[in-house]
């Protein structure tokens, strides 16, 4: 009893034990349970961390997409103006080209007229000569 009171016991192998084997077993079980718990917790932590990372990445992606969408929307709202400007520019280029064509056409016409008059003159001279 006294030894029991002092807490000294013997186990099955007759080794001196300060702790009650029953408690000892329970403690051991507790320790194992704790260990498995911590490992599980750290695993959970890892999982959660991964999740967070992924969510962050997704958030970033979404944020980017959002920005892009905003940009696109802005572009879309601006597009009529841009189109108008480009159209204007193209029209100006077209007008320039058309003008150039007209100029060349007019010059060509005047040259044709000169040639016509020269041909008339040649005909007149040959008539007079013969």
């Amino acid at each position: 009893m006294a030894s029991e009171d002092r807490g000294i016991t013997f186990d099955e192998m007759y080794r001196i034990r300060v702790f009650d084997p029953d408690k000892q077993r329970q403690t051991k079980e507790l320790q194992e349970a704790c260990e498995s718990f911590t490992s599980k917790i750290s695993e959970l932590d890892k999982v959660v961390r991964g999740l967070l990372e992924q969510i962050g990445a997704q958030a970033q992606k979404i944020e980017n997409e959002k920005l892009r969408a905003m940009g696109q929307r802005l572009k879309a709202t601006m597009e009529p103006d841009v189109r108008k400007r480009k159209l204007g520019e193209q029209a100006a280029v077209l007008a320039e080209k058309q003008q150039e064509l007209d100029d060349i056409g007019r010059e060509y016409e005047s040259l044709l007229k000169v040639r016509h008059e020269q041909e008339l003159m040649i005909a007149k001279i040959t008539d007079a000569g013969s």
Partner: peptide, 29 residues
């Protein structure tokens, strides 16, 4: 008929060359 404000550019062999205000060259026999 070639419009107002012409400019006389050159007097070549067959024709006179005029320039319109637009910069177009026209030739006149």
């Amino acid at each position: 008929q070639h419009g107002p404000r012409l400019e006389l550019v050159a007097y070549g062999e067959p024709a006179a060359t005029l320039r319109t205000p637009r910069g177009t060259l026209v030739h006149v026999a």
